[in-house]
Design a protein around this nucleic acid. Structure first.
Lengths: 126, 126
DNA sequence: CTCGATAGTCTGCTTTTCCATATTACCTCT
DNA sequence: AGAGGTAATATGGAAAAGCAGACTATCGAG
């Protein structure tokens, strides 16, 4: 039996030279995903939902994280405009991290993905 | 000026022994994220939205992917119940990949995240 | 009998991510 | 004077992810 080309493949066909609009959208999407992947990023964002927190406060809220990791992940989140870093030139130094509007607006999408995970958690490996 | 504990920290406070419900939810969430992270996973899922595809067909639709990567990513997606692999014991071998219901239901969450990425793309690094 | 197509697997390598352990600089408290 | 807290940086190593290229088995076409 022959397989008679189930459906026109608009996605693949338009991407011979990587110029189709779909590909560009996928790339943007990937960038968004990359902005929130990282072992602690989601936990950090979820912690900050309740309000701004200081560096050490976050560290205590995330048992197991190293200073290095926290610094790195926060820097990354700030670089992507998801959290806002505010350093107060006091001594001892005080640095506060808060969600930006982008960070706050991220939560509904988290909610959607969480609902999905809840529905299909039994088939999710690991 | 003193900082008077902006808000009760329900998340951090309950997680001293990693037993709070929020932590468990974050872990579930992380599992969902891990199921869709990987350099080609999203492109594969987006390709399959139009209908089932064969291995080689997918490979041609994703220029730049290696056989190894495609095999691996598909296996991973199948392991997480997002795609369904159907091998027909013919010769030459024919293997078809299709989105499962979980995979189809994933699309709206992709849409939400995509909208977010669209709105804030100018501050996304990289 | 060799060639090509299919859907892989196997091996070795590079890059990225993750993690632990120092070390810094400044100020306060004792 | 010395201990302690704060927010980092620096260094070095382990683990995971990604990549290229060679190899397999089967069958039909030429």
């Amino acid at each position: 039996m022959e397989k008679q080309t189930i459906e026109p493949r608009t996605y693949g066909d338009e991407c011979d030279g990587c110029t189709g609009p779909e590909r560009i959208e996928v790339m943007r999407f990937q960038r968004a995903i990359r902005a929130i992947t990282g072992k602690w990023k989601i936990e950090i964002v979820c912690s900050l939902v309740a309000g701004p927190m200081r560096f050490g406060e976050l560290r205590r809220a995330l048992p197991g994280i190293t200073q290095h990791m926290l610094t790195e992940q926060l820097r990354d989140l700030a670089r992507n405009g998801i959290v806002i870093r505010t350093a107060y030139p006091e001594v001892p130094p005080r640095v506060e991290y808060a969600l930006s509007q982008a960070g706050i607006d991220l939560m509904p999408t988290f909610g959607a993905l969480h609902d999905w995970a809840l529905r299909y958690q039994d088939r999710l490996a690991d």
